[in-house]
């Protein structure tokens, strides 16, 4: 399976994603420059973390208009998997692939830390190798990670099982202390209505090796593999 990793000016997790796909997963990956108009036959698109366009205007607001995003949106609309990580999540929201928005962390500080996220739905394209309620240790590194949406949208996301990950403490409780950015309802990741676009602030591609602290992110990538290859 081929993963296409989009590089925007200011992306800085594209190499991490490439490493995770090729070295850990053992699959093919290719970098796609944001000015290109060709997904190069990629089966899965990764919008990586970073600071595309220096976060000018709003995080992800300008990247959304990069030429390649037309192809990415078309890929998503036709059911192709899209994984938006951190800045990629922000871009996916700005592009309308996911509802809501990511705002400045409530404490105003950049947060770089390992957090715990609880798997809320283990029946998706991206989480089918996890157990519901399982706690994952995954790093976050962001200044604008506070997920917001209207109460109606939040209710709908939760009711439809589209909230995939929530920040939790070591006991699995959704406490305010475990929430690194003030996200509504501790939300760390959501999927699109059709289930093929996942956006999350934590970095699963940086949690792919026990040597580096955690390998809990590997099964997210493997989940896609098991579903798409099947």
């Amino acid at each position: 399976m081929k993963f296409g990793i989009v590089t925007f000016p200011g992306s800085n997790c594209d190499y991490d994603a490439f490493h995770a796909v090729t070295e850990i997963l053992g699959e093919e990956a290719t970098y796609i420059w944001h000015k290109d108009h060709d997904l190069q036959g990629s089966d899965v698109i990764i919008l990586p973390g970073g600071f595309s366009y220096g976060d000018y205007l709003r995080a992800g607001a300008i990247a959304r208009f990069s030429p390649i995003m037309q192809e990415v949106v078309a890929h998503a609309k036709s059911g192709g998997p899209v994984l938006g990580i951190c800045n990629g999540f922000q871009i996916a929201c700005e592009a309308g692939l996911l509802p809501g928005a990511l705002m400045r962390n409530s404490h105003l500080q950049f947060v770089s830390a390992e957090v715990r996220i609880r798997v809320e739905n283990a029946e998706t394209l991206f989480t089918n190798l996890y157990e519901r309620g399982e706690l994952l240790r995954i790093p976050v590194a962001h200044g604008d990670g506070r997920f917001v949406a209207t109460p109606e949208v939040l209710d709908q996301l939760e009711g439809d099982g589209r909230v995939i990950f929530k920040y939790a403490d070591a006991d699995g409780n959704l406490s305010a202390d475990a929430n690194p950015n003030g996200s509504e309802r501790n939300i760390a990741g959501i999927i699109s209505e059709s289930g093929n676009v996942l956006g999350l602030m934590p970095h699963p591609e940086r949690a792919c090796s026990a040597l580096l602290g955690s390998s809990d992110g590997v099964r997210l990538l493997e989940s896609i593999l098991s579903r798409v290859a099947a």
Binding site: L57, R58, A61, F65, C93, E94, P99, G100, A101, M103, V148, A149, T150
Partner: peptide, 8 residues
């Protein structure tokens, strides 16, 4: 379309 985010 761009300058303001309609959600926030």
């Amino acid at each position: 379309k761009l300058l303001a985010n309609p959600v926030t």
